[in-house]
Design a protein around this nucleic acid. Structure first.
Lengths: 199, 199
DNA sequence: CATTATTAGACAGTGGCACTATCTATGTAA
DNA sequence: TTACATAGATAGTGCCACTGTCTAATAATG
C-alpha cells in the first residue's frame, strides 16, 4: 500500500507518519521509485504499536525509539535487557531505595534504572510532607511484587525474541492499566471502608 | 520570611515561585506593603508539596491545581471526591473496561474518571498487537486490588480532611513508587525464571 | 538622608516537544 | 495530457513550564 492508505487505515496523518519515519520509529517502505515506496502489514502493525506507546503509555518519542530498538534487536544477556535506558552518566547514589529494598529482602541487580526512579519517588514523598509509614509501603511493595510475578509468569517461552518483546512492551503498555485499576480499586475500597460520606 | 528566603530554603527559583503564585498553586503571602509580603512555614511546606507533585508525580500544573483544590476544600461526599477530574463532557462509553470489570465482579461507581483511563489502556493494548490473555490481566487486577486495599487501610480516620488529603495525595505520590517497584520486581522475577541469559 | 537592594506584579521571551504545513522534484494514474 | 501522489527537506505551530525584564514602590544600610 502507499503512504496515504497506511494513513487512512490507521488514522494517523501522513505528515505524522513521515515524522515517525524520520525519527526511526517506523522502518522505511520498500522503494519502487524516487518518489514512491510500498508499505505492508508489518508497517501498519508497527505504526499501531508506536501509537499505543506514544498515546496510551505516554512514552516520549525518544523513549519509544529505545523501547523499539530493544524489541527489534533483543540483547544477548538479561542484564543488558534490564539495564535498558539506564544512563550511566546520571545514575546517582540511591540511599533511600537501597535501604527500603534491604528491608524487603529483595535482591536487586545493581545499576538498574528503576532504582533511580524509586529513589526519586521516595525522596519526593518524604519532602512532600505526606507521612506514609514504612510498614505500609513495605506491604504495598509485597503486593506489587505479586503483580510483577504474575506478569513474568505470563512471559512466553517460545523464543527469546518473543520473551523480550513481551516483557519490554508489557512493562510499558500495562502500566496505565495498572494505574487505572488501582484508582478504581481505591474507589471500591474507599466505599467499603468509609461508605458514601467521608470521615 | 521574604520570597528570596523561601526560594533559598526550597531551591525553587524566585521566578518559579511567582509563577506558582500566579497559577494559584501557592497562596499569596501576607502583604506588609505594596511591594512586600511575608511567607511562613506553611508556604514552604506547600511549595515542597507542589514540587513533589510536579517533579516526581509528573502532574501538569493544571492537574496539580485540581488536586490541591480538593485537599484545600475537601468535598462533602465521597462520590464528589471520587469524581475528581472527571470531565463530564468527554466521558465516553467504556465497553472494554465495563466488560473487564464485570469479569472481576468489581462493583464500580458510574462515571468514574479512571474508567476512561482503563478503557484507553485496554484499547491501546489491544491494537498494539501485544496479546495478553484476559486471565492474566484479571490476575494482575486481583493483585492490584490488594495494593489498593492496603493503601486504603492506611488512610487515617482522625478527620475527614486528613483522610481526603492522604488519599488524594497518596494516589498521586505513591504511583511512581509503585511503578518503580514493579520494574524492580520484574527484574527479580525475570532472573528467577530465566536466569541471566534470555530464552 | 542618601544609596543600594529587594519586591510585587505585569508581561514578554525561551526551550523543548510532538507534530504539521509547505515546497520541490519526481513519478503514477486516468 | 492532465490531475494527483509521494519522498525528502525545511520551516512553522501550539502547548507547556518556566524564565527574564521592567517599573513603581518599599526596605535596609551607612
Amino acid at each position: 500500500m502507499r503512504i496515504s492508505e497506511l494513513a487512512a487505515r490507521t488514522g494517523v496523518p501522513v505528515a505524522t507518519i513521515k515524522y515517525y519515519l524520520r525519527e526511526g520509529l517506523l522502518p522505511a517502505g520498500e522503494r519502487t521509485s524516487a518518489t514512491q515506496a510500498q508499505y505492508g502489514e508489518a508497517h501498519e502493525q508497527r505504526l499501531r504499536l508506536v501509537r499505543a506507546l506514544v498515546d496510551v503509555a505516554h512514552l516520549s518519542i525518544q523513549r519509544t525509539r529505545q523501547v523499539l530498538a530493544v524489541v527489534d534487536a533483543p540483547p544477548a544477556s538479561m542484564s543488558e535487557l534490564l539495564h535498558l535506558a539506564t544512563d550511566p552518566d546520571d545514575s546517582q547514589a540511591t540511599p533511600r531505595a537501597s535501604a527500603f529494598l534491604e528491608g524487603l529482602d529483595w535482591t536487586v541487580p545493581e545499576g538498574l534504572g528503576a532504582l533511580d526512579e524509586l529513589e526519586r519517588g521516595l525522596a519526593g514523598l518524604a519532602d512532600s510532607g505526606l507521612d506514609i509509614p514504612r510498614a505500609q509501603l513495605e506491604a504495598v511493595a509485597g503486593a506489587v511484587d505479586r503483580v510483577a510475578e504474575i506478569e513474568i509468569d505470563g512471559v512466553p517461552t517460545t523464543s527469546a525474541e518473543a520473551a523480550v518483546a513481551y516483557s519490554v512492551l508489557g512493562t510499558e503498555l500495562v502500566a496505565p492499566i495498572i494505574l487505572a485499576l488501582r484508582r478504581i480499586a481505591h474507589a471500591r475500597h474507599t466505599f467499603a471502608r468509609f461508605g458514601h460520606e467521608p470521615g
